[in-house]
Nucleic acid binder design. Structure first.
Lengths: 338, 338
DNA sequence: CTGAAAGCGCTAACAA
DNA sequence: TTGTTAGCGCTTTCAG
């Protein structure tokens, strides 16, 4: 368990040159079996580990990928992170993590910071994406993927699920269950693209079923627990009692359910509620949450795989990857009695 | 936004030697204001960023700290991670994350892997700690802190909260509420130290109140949601209906509550339940969970700060840091009617 | 197949 | 105060 054994030490001890040692550890060039074995023995004996810093310096490959996230403790984020981490390790990459707390400044700064740290690529998760982000990502001079619920219209690599369709489907599902007055609690105001995609899915389903759009049913509360709670509370306090609430985030949905319960109503008996993402807690909460399943782990896996491919200049089929979603029926929605 | 500008380029452009440039970027040695300004200008103009790899190679400081965790998506873990990340950044360190999925092999391997990656120190979170871990940590040749719910008796740096006392207090609290038949659902069998500490706290409280220890009330189900659910289900199916259940983990506690509800009992009316950790979900679930608060963020912050101090050979007061805990009374425990 | 030597970008003596 | 130079540990020509 010593340190500081260098390639030199190994070379000397094995009676060969350092280039030969280098060749065997990378098997980059042919080496006689005999010599090879000898070197291998010495390596094992001394416990030599090549210094990746020195290696990176010459190869210009740091084996590092930067991951920018709003917050590790967000369940949407950390389930994705699991996928990122595992695949990265599989390809011998390490992850440099940057928490931004959804601060745009921080997000932009992180890109530079990570680049300075010599990462070879970047995976970014962010709730909100505007032109500054796009510019930064496009000009950062290295492979970058953006994991999002949206961003289909920007010319950057993204992995996502189809929001418009998912929102449309879920709204339809709710309508199919007899609900007409459907509250829609979504991300905060500033996220224009996601906003539009989701809203259009919601509106489309409504109009196809000849239900008038009622703007007072739409809330921009954000996707946090608190946001969901507050939005629903406001709705109820304004005397608006929807048949169902479609909350575009599981934690927010649970916040909404709690707000409903605190106001003396019952879920799903009085008001049905659905979430989005199918995060761990969706199964743990009671009533179990009916929600839109997204393959979070896979989204992370695909995104990191994409940057690795980009780094290695492997062919990629398309800049946009959309992963499938599906509605998971659990207990928070029931048929409305008319 | 170009790359590949090196210290040489800056030196040439500023008409000085590279050492002078090095001096101004590190302000390690005095440089004439005039020259300094000139260099600074060129740096700004070219957008030069020093290559940390090259720097690390010579200074032997990678500015990297390895963090070994069972799983990022565990809420106990990621709330700690927030603290680690933030403080690390504050001291200009980056985090190399290693997920182990609680596999001992992986944990041990990760220590070596991270060392190979030239991290200057390690923070490790692990549910279970045995002598192999201790040996590895002690012999890894670099500063390491262990964040745990236990490990007071090992000669390594740890940050934790006092388990025995917390368990004792919570048990007493439950007894004070009139509960006598108190189920105790804890970590899985193999975690001897934590096991002992917690059990002894539980037993102490019981015996001081003249309540006989009933081993059939003790379950080693682990701290996952599933573990808690299963343990409680088994208990109930064995015809054991406790007055209260003390589950040493919030997610597991919620699992237990669900098992109780699924069996047709009510929480807290029929059975009171408490958790441990006060993780985010404890406030989100209904009934809100009565639990033992632990300063998770602070635990991470303290641990990483400790490692950084160790790296810089700053003085440290004691190898063991115990952070305060406290019982948070919410809704999952009520007074037992006799 | 193997070794010598150059150099990755930087810091840190050592001179000047 | 500044420049020159020798490495840090490694990979990679280039000869042999």
């Amino acid at each position: 368990m010593k340190m500081n054994i260098t390639i030199k030490d190994v070379a000397k001890k094995a009676g060969v040159s350092i280039s030969t040692v280098s060749r065997v550890i990378n098997d980059s060039k042919p080496v006689t079996d005999e010599v090879k074995q000898k070197v291998l023995d010495v390596i094992k004996e001394t416990g030599y580990i090549p210094n990746p810093l020195a290696r990176s310096l010459v190869t210009k490959k740091s084996q590092l990928i930067g991951v920018i996230v709003p917050e590790v403790s967000d369940s949407f984020v950390n389930e994705i992170l699991n996928g990122i981490e595992e695949i990265a390790k599989m390809y011998d990459y390490d992850i440099l993590l940057a928490n931004t707390y959804s601060d745009k400044e921080q997000e932009l700064k992180s890109i530079n910071l990570l680049r300075a740290k010599q990462v070879e690529g970047i995976v970014m998760i962010s709730w909100i994406l505007d032109e500054d982000h796009i510019n930064y990502i496009q000009n950062c001079g290295m492979p970058a993927t953006y994991i999002s619920k949206t961003a289909r219209d920007f010319d950057i690599y993204t992995v996502s699920t189809s929001n418009k369709e998912a929102t449309y489907d879920m709204t339809n599902y709710l309508i199919g269950k007899g609900h007409e007055k459907i509250a829609f609690v979504m991300t905060s105001q500033d996220d224009t693209v996601l906003e539009m995609e989701r809203l259009s899915g919601y509106e489309k389903a409504l109009s196809e079923n000849n239900i008038n759009l009622d703007n007072s049913l739409i809330k921009h509360g954000g996707t946090t627990y608190e946001g969901g709670y507050k939005s629903m509370k406001e709705l109820l306090e304004d005397g608006i009692i929807p048949h169902a609430a479609f909350v575009t985030g599981d934690e927010a949905a649970i916040g909404a359910i709690n707000a409903i319960c605190d106001a003396g109503y019952k879920v799903p008996e009085d008001i049905s509620v659905t979430g989005f993402n199918d995060v761990k807690i969706a199964k743990m909460y009671r009533p179990k949450l009916t929600t839109v399943y997204q393959p979070l782990y896979d989204m992370g896996a695909v995104a990191i795989r994409m940057v690795i491919k980009l780094i290695n200049k492997e062919p990629i089929d398309g800049k946009k990857i959309e992963l499938p979603y599906r509605i998971i029926e659990r207990e928070s929605v029931i048929e409305r009695k008319k």
